[in-house]
Design a protein around this nucleic acid. Structure first.
Length: 213
DNA sequence: CCATTGATCGTCT
DNA sequence: GACGATCAATGGT
């Protein structure tokens, strides 16, 4: 089966995931999210990647074929989702950081009762996973199979002029690498906590700077 | 608006 | 035994 745009280098895959739609089915209903913020991990030698220290049971999916979902557990309470990309045997993935709910709004609101506005429903990787109803059970799911409970749809491409790029959020190492991509001025993008625990100097902030137009 | 902190557990050392 | 690819609540400016 074809895996459009998922087998190449991780940076290109990440950028092109913006505007695409992740649709998750469950007995409760279906929620779909249009991706507005992503981060690339892995590739050549990325110390921030879970796969950096080699193959373990957790990172097994990252080493597998592209187009599958890598779901991991963080901070004792949250789940986060990645799209595995690159060739089989190359461990790279794109973290899904934020999106706009485009279908199943009522169900997403039900799952995210603390959200004060709709753009907040999937603003942040753990929130996005929660809005879609995804947890460890979705780890390894094939996103390109018609019968999968989680699928990656074509969506609408985002033109270059609307894409901004900057450092990844919350990574302890390689925090200066601009491998985070987001849709400019989109309210669902998690603009807070830029740089995470470590302070990031202003010089390394967005490569394209047009936050306020 | 911004900064700080507690919650809570799988994974790896 | 330490540490997170985080979130939400709290309190300050």
């Amino acid at each position: 089966m074809a895996r459009p745009g998922l087998a190449g280098p991780v940076l290109g895959v990440a950028r092109d995931l913006l505007g695409r739609v992740v649709e998750a089915w469950s007995p409760e209903g279906t929620v779909a999210v249009r991706l507005t913020e992503v981060e690339a991990y892995g590739g050549a030698a990325d110390p921030a990647s879970h796969a950096f220290r080699g193959r373990t049971s957790r990172t097994e999916v990252m080493f597998g074929p592209p187009g599958h979902l890598y779901v991991y557990f963080v901070f004792g309470m949250h789940w986060c989702c990645n799209v595995v990309c690159g060739a089989d045997g190359v461990a790279s993935a794109v973290l899904l950081r934020a999106g706009a709910v485009v279908s199943g709004l009522d169900l997403a609101r039900h799952r995210r009762t603390t959200a004060r506005s709709d753009p907040e429903l999937a603003r942040g990787p753990a929130r996005l996973a929660a809005a879609l109803g995804l947890d460890g059970r979705a780890n390894g799911v094939d996103l390109c199979a018609a019968a999968s409970p989680v699928r990656l749809l074509a969506g609408t491409p985002v033109p270059d002029r609307a894409v901004e790029q900057g450092p990844r959020v919350g990574v302890a190492s390689a925090g200066d690498v601009p491998w985070r991509f987001w849709v400019a001025a989109d309210p669902s993008v998690s603009t807070y906590r830029l740089g995470g625990r470590r302070r990031v100097s202003r010089a390394t902030l967005p490569v394209t700077t047009s936050r306020r137009g």
